[in-house]
Nucleic acid binder design. Structure first.
Lengths: 214, 214
DNA sequence: GTCTATAAACAGATAGAC
DNA sequence: GTCTATCTGTTTATAGAC
């Protein structure tokens, strides 16, 4: 669904991987290009050579984020089931896949802090990723919610409910430092992620059931 | 509940207000102290005079955030009601107050992006604010959830459910640029906030009902 | 394509007049 | 308390050898 299918290789890929991690952790402005080059095992000038300048590297990071999310999204089936029960089941499956990806997948680790910062800054990177990925994904979940509850797919209430469902999950990742402290966990690993996913799947079932009665 | 009751005045207050806004919007490292001084209508040297250095200004911002949240928290009653219905009602009231504060209160506007960045960086500022404010608030909601559902206050499930409830709300603020785009809203104003609050209050009632059956 | 060396701009901090 | 002027370190970007 994204328009950037090319996967970078070699030094360029190493630079993007390092930049993604450091931009996410310390922020764009707080990360010197020398540090990125050092972590990538490359030279400072390589950034200018491959991406023009630091801003170009940021755009390349955004493209890489879009590419990786696209890869993860491509794994879920695209058909909208006819029966409400099947739609609910598929929505739960997607939620569990998202939970696994967002909470524990190593390849998601660097991209979420990066995206979080871009959302906060509400800049051009967000425009791209929103149109290419977030909007289609939200539309798809809205269609499933509608099929599961009998409501209208693009109704205001439907779209807001999908945000509520997704928000429940994303907060566990965004507020991870807080969650870990409060839960007394050493980390948010696969076991903790499974507990959270079960809990949220139960909430989703309850919400759908409740909405169907309306 | 916070340990910093002193409200700043004059130039110091202007500098904190400007820094809070700019740190939240562009990030700490990306904000030059000259820009802060200009927005506050003060001189660059005033920062060193009042706060020692830039890092001191950051700490002052954190203290101001704690002070403002503390003010907002102080308005909710501290007693835990005996009956499950009363506990549920009180939890819904708190959720609605939080929604009003988080989504539309002008005094919350600069502090949320600031806090979001501090959570992402997981630094010393978070340690302070977590211990002084977040942990007590979460404990209090956990106690209410327990009273409303008949579950145990510090059970793992209880604490996670409270995060799910809070996460639903916070995501609407954190992901605001995304929500606004997808909903086709011009802004997230009082009318939109009321719609969201009603929706989330309904979800809360459903979740409590469902948990009581367990 | 990769590296070293350097230029030009900008940051935070400080000295000292008022 | 507030200001101007300046010092010192660091940053990005680039020129040019290899």
């Amino acid at each position: 669904m994204a328009d950037l299918p090319k996967a970078p290789e070699g030094t360029a890929a190493d630079l993007i991987a390092a930049a993604l991690r450091l931009f996410g952790q310390k922020g764009f402005a707080a990360t010197p290009i020398r540090e990125i080059a050092a972590e990538a095992g490359a030279n400072v000038a390589a950034i200018a050579y491959h991406f023009g300048n630091k801003e170009g590297l940021r755009r390349a990071c955004a493209a890489e984020v879009a590419r990786r999310i696209d890869l993860a999204v491509a794994r879920v089936p695209a058909s909208t089931p006819a029966s409400p029960a099947a739609a609910a089941a598929q929505m739960e499956a997607i939620l569990r896949t998202m939970a696994g990806f967002v909470l524990t997948a190593p390849e998601a680790e660097p991209i979420l802090p990066f995206m979080l910062r871009e959302v906060a800054e509400d800049g051009p990177v967000l425009d791209t990723v929103y149109g290419a990925l977030m909007e289609p994904a939200h539309r798809r979940l809205s269609a499933l919610w509608a099929a599961a509850t009998g409501q209208e797919a693009e109704a205001e209430r439907t779209r807001l409910m999908v945000f509520a469902v997704v928000g429940q999950l994303l907060y566990f990742r965004i507020g991870r430092p807080i969650v870990i402290r409060r839960m007394g966990w050493a980390a948010l690993g696969p076991a903790e992620a499974a507990t959270i996913a079960d809990l949220l799947a139960g909430n989703l079932r309850g919400m759908i059931e409740r909405e169907r009665a309306t």
